[in-house]
């Protein structure tokens, strides 16, 4: 067991390093931060001096080694744009992204299951067909279009919901603020959460429907029917429970992509999370901020995958058996 965990950990670190290296070398193509940092009156000497002081004249391997060395100590440097420590800024912005991801994940999961079950049970009803068709829109429309459409409808035309920002916030700890405790905060969450969750919603819905149809054809459901159990008990106690296992796995893995894909939703709704931070950093060629963000996202993915792997190990006895047989 221990050897397995250690091996997985080493693999994770290797993945992290690779991601960091690739993203770091990509920065060579993003452009030159110096022009953004100095005004148009700066002389070429000023530019050269700043370039030297920031270490941008060193070769990429040296820059990467310096970056990794500092990053291991939790130091991602100072943002070129905001002149503040990168890790501090990210910690301030992370709650907004996590809150949005959690709410939209929850929205996608509950509604996805409900609609999935409904469309599986009423396969030929007109409402089911309508939902299935509408879900195609959810899959195929790009996120930013959905966001803009929602803003147009609910913010500009109906004026029910705000078009941008997080509303009023309540500070819980120094770094953690939430909009869930105020009315304007909850209202602000609705549109971005729908925009971000729509794709996952349709994914989960279609998954639940397919699994449910599969399960309903199995023998034990037939036996349950033969035992004279009520439809309700068959559908929800027996069928649904067995449907949910793969759904939970997928949802877990999707959580990472919700956080990563929040970039677009956050930009459309000016949601002050890390995704928006990343976009502004790219526009400014804020290299320390971009590197830190990419490392953070890689870290989130690696942790989720690691947890899923370890859970499999715990849940699935076959894995354990194979390992011990190998020893």
């Amino acid at each position: 067991m221990l050897a397995y965990i250690i091996r997985r950990l080493i693999q994770s670190v290797a993945v992290m390093l690779t991601v960091a290296l690739i993203s770091f070398s990509l920065f060579q193509f993003v452009g030159d931060p110096i022009n953004n940092m100095l005004g148009q009156e700066a002389t070429s000497q000023d530019r050269e001096n700043l370039r030297e002081r920031l270490g941008l004249n060193d070769s990429i391997p040296i820059q990467f080694a310096r970056f990794t060395g500092n990053a291991i100590q939790g130091d991602f440097g100072i943002s070129y744009r905001m002149a503040r420590p990168v890790s501090e800024v990210i910690m301030e912005r992370l709650p907004a992204t996590l809150e949005l991801a959690a709410v939209s994940g929850l929205f996608a999961l509950t509604l996805g299951i409900v609609l999935g079950v409904y469309t599986a049970l009423r396969r030929d009803g007109w409402l089911s067909n309508f939902i299935m068709t509408a879900s195609l829109v959810g899959v195929s429309l790009p996120t930013f279009v959905i966001g803009i459409l929602l803003i147009y409808l609910f913010a500009v035309e109906l004026q029910w919901l705000p078009s941008f920002g997080r509303g009023e916030l309540v500070q819980i700890t120094d770094n953690w603020s939430t909009g869930l405790l105020t009315e304007s905060g909850r209202k602000s969450l609705i549109l971005p959460a729908i925009t971000l969750g729509l794709f996952q919603l349709t994914l989960i819905m279609r998954l639940v429907r397919a699994e449910m149809l599969e399960v309903l054809r199995t023998d034990y459901i037939k036996f349950a029917r033969a035992r004279g159990l009520s439809q309700r008990a068959i559908h929800f106690r027996h069928a649904l429970k067995n449907t949910l296992l793969p759904v939970i796995t997928i949802t877990g893995l999707q959580l990472g992509s919700i956080i990563a894909f929040a970039i677009i939703t956050e930009t459309v709704f000016q949601w002050p999370g890390v995704g928006l931070l990343f976009i502004t950093a790219i526009n400014f060629v804020d290299i320390p901020m971009m590197s830190a963000y990419l490392v953070l996202i890689a870290f989130i993915f690696v942790v989720i995958n690691l947890v899923v792997d370890l859970l499999y190990f715990v849940v699935d006895p076959r894995l354990r058996a194979e390992k011990s047989a190998a020893h």
Binding site: I151, Y152, A155, Q159, S163, F164, Q270, I279
Partner: peptide, 18 residues
């Protein structure tokens, strides 16, 4: 002052009176 980077959202915020 609330900066809004997306152009269409900026226009929407003014249209909606926010």
């Amino acid at each position: 002052h609330t900066p809004i980077s997306s152009a269409s959202t900026r226009a929407a915020a003014l249209l909606s009176g926010e």
